[in-house]
Computed example of a mutant assay.
Amino acid sequence: MSKTDSQKFKVTPAGYDDIAGVSVLETQVYADDAYPSLFFYQALRQWPETFLIVKRKEIVAGYSLLVPVSEATLSLMSVLVGKEYQGMGLGATLLRETVVLARSLNYQRIELSVSPDNESAIALYKKLNFKETERRCDYLGPGQDRIIMVLLL
């Protein structure tokens, strides 16, 4: 992606008008396992400070959602870039902005779980200094193993 192209995308707080676009991306990437639109409306109501999107004009290209789990810790519930926008550096941009946001809110750590098969996500997390802390078998149900990663802020 050229510098001109990357400047067309902007990371902003999510708004209710963005939920339809977020839901479309979620369904494109996760199909039957996608979070429903209702989840995103509830998430925006519960955690408006920590729900970010990346978009060009009015088109949503991706989102991230951090959920507080304690006074010190946020869980990265999801970071997703739509299929047609992958490979453009938007995931890295979105994740960097998500980390900046967490620091600005005075959290001390971000934790996440990722599929061991998701090599591109793991590489991105490692690039941004997330560290693997453990592997959990059947974390999300039978056959749904996960790697747990943490970033100290």
Rank of each mutant, 00 (worst) to 15 (best):
Q28H: 15
Y30W: 13
D32L: 08
D33P: 00
A34W: 14
P36Y: 10
S37Q: 15
L38C: 05
F39V: 12
F39L: 13
F39S: 11
F40M: 10
Q42S: 12
W47V: 11
P48K: 10
E49W: 03
E49Y: 06
V54H: 05
R56F: 00
R56K: 15
K57G: 00
K57H: 11
E58T: 13
G62Y: 04
S64C: 06
L65W: 09
L66E: 10
L66W: 07
V67Y: 02
P68N: 08
S70F: 07
E71V: 03
A72Q: 13
A72K: 13
T73F: 01
T73G: 07
L74I: 11
L74G: 08
S75I: 03
S75P: 00
M77E: 11
M77S: 11
S78H: 08
S78R: 13
L80T: 14
L80H: 00
L80P: 00
V81A: 05
V81H: 05
G82I: 07
K83H: 14
K83L: 15
E84Q: 15
E84Y: 11
Q86W: 06
M88Q: 15
G89K: 08
L90I: 10
L90H: 08
L90G: 07
T93R: 14
T93F: 06
L95H: 05
L95Q: 08
E97H: 15
T98F: 08
T98C: 09
V99F: 04
A102D: 04
R103T: 13
L105E: 07
L105A: 02
L105S: 05
Y107G: 06
Q108L: 14
Q108T: 08
R109Y: 00
R109W: 00
E111R: 04
V114W: 08
S115C: 05
N118F: 00
E119L: 14
E119T: 10
E119R: 08
E119V: 10
E119F: 03
S120Y: 00
A121P: 01
A121H: 03
A123L: 05
A123Q: 06
Y125A: 04
K126Q: 15
L128N: 03
L128Y: 03
N129M: 01
F130P: 06
K131A: 10
E132W: 01
E132H: 01
T133E: 06
T133H: 01
R135G: 04
R136L: 04
R136E: 02
C137T: 09
Y139G: 02
G141H: 04
G141R: 02
P142Y: 01
D145N: 14
I148N: 09
M149P: 11
V150A: 10
L151W: 01
L152W: 01
L152T: 14
